[in-house]
Design a protein around this nucleic acid. Structure first.
Lengths: 152, 152
DNA sequence: GAAATATAGTTAAACATTTAACTAATAAGT
DNA sequence: ACTTATTAGTTAAATGTTTAACTATATTTC
């Protein structure tokens, strides 16, 4: 067992917590994505529709980018197929010619009602290792962690 | 506030825990990647070198893929530049002609000594929202979560 | 009110990763 | 032993995302 091997196999508490977060999260995301692809969908597109719904059914692309945490360029390309599939509509902003107004179409809302409950079931079943009290503890800890990582 | 908006903005406990995990982890990964790119590196390549070190300095590509959790195809393409940069060497397996033996080069070990401590500092500073006891709690909860998500 | 600056959105190129198809080598079944 | 199946690794195509360059519109500044 040489020095570098020991160094990387015996990380300090912070690094172990970080690696564990990354592993657990990647695994859960994997299960979620498997569900989406079983429905012929993917997480990015659903997340976008969910975010429009969260905003009350109407939103600007740049808002979507900020809320989801991806670039505006990415939102641009995500919107195209979603509009083609009839899940949303878009139109110019009446007062500011630079903006586009994105609206969740009835078909998009129907899709969300169709697939979100199943996804929540998948997630819930994959979190059965924790009871409710522990899930609350986890949420509390992650909340504290977030405060420490507020972008400086 | 319509029905779908309420549905997506008031998720159950499991979903809230999941979303919080995804958010917190993505943010931490972002800080880590920012560090790597400030060094002209990226997380995927470093992770690969770390995994060779963990294994004691010698490993097979397929082992790397399994441990890191990416495809063998991805390992194949990651190895090329790392070998070109002199961070590792590769050679054929003497007994099994299908295999390749990957060895961490001295230059690769030097790189790890150079950059890992800084990365650990970045991570630690971003986890200051939690004290040590809370980090241990987090690790415990994530451990329980993992047991529940062992691939079926 | 003209010029400079900033913002919203799009497009194309670059990059990372996965999937699928392939080659070569070994192991297993008969 | 020979044939079939499995395994290790590579390559190319497809997918998803970011970065950078660009267009068009608004806003600010002088």
């Amino acid at each position: 067992m040489n020095d570098i091997q020991r160094y990387v196999t015996e990380p300090p508490l912070e690094a172990r917590a970080f690696f564990s977060l990354v592993d657990a999260t990647a695994r859960l995301i994997g299960f979620s994505e498997k569900y989406w692809s079983s429905k012929g969908l993917n997480g990015a597109r659903i997340r976008l529709l969910v975010e429009i719904a969260k905003a009350g059914g109407t939103i600007l692309p740049s808002d979507l980018a900020a809320r989801i945490g991806v670039t505006r360029a990415n939102i641009s390309v995500l919107l195209v197929p979603l509009e083609e599939m009839g899940y949303l509509t878009s139109s110019g902003h009446p007062e500011d010619g630079r903006k586009r107004i994105i609206v969740l179409a009835p078909e998009g809302e129907r899709l969300l009602w169709d697939v979100l409950p199943g996804n929540r079931s998948v997630i819930a079943s994959r979190m059965e290792g924790l009871n409710d009290e522990e899930k609350v503890q986890l949420l509390t800890l992650l909340g504290k962690l977030q405060k420490g990582t507020a972008t400086p």
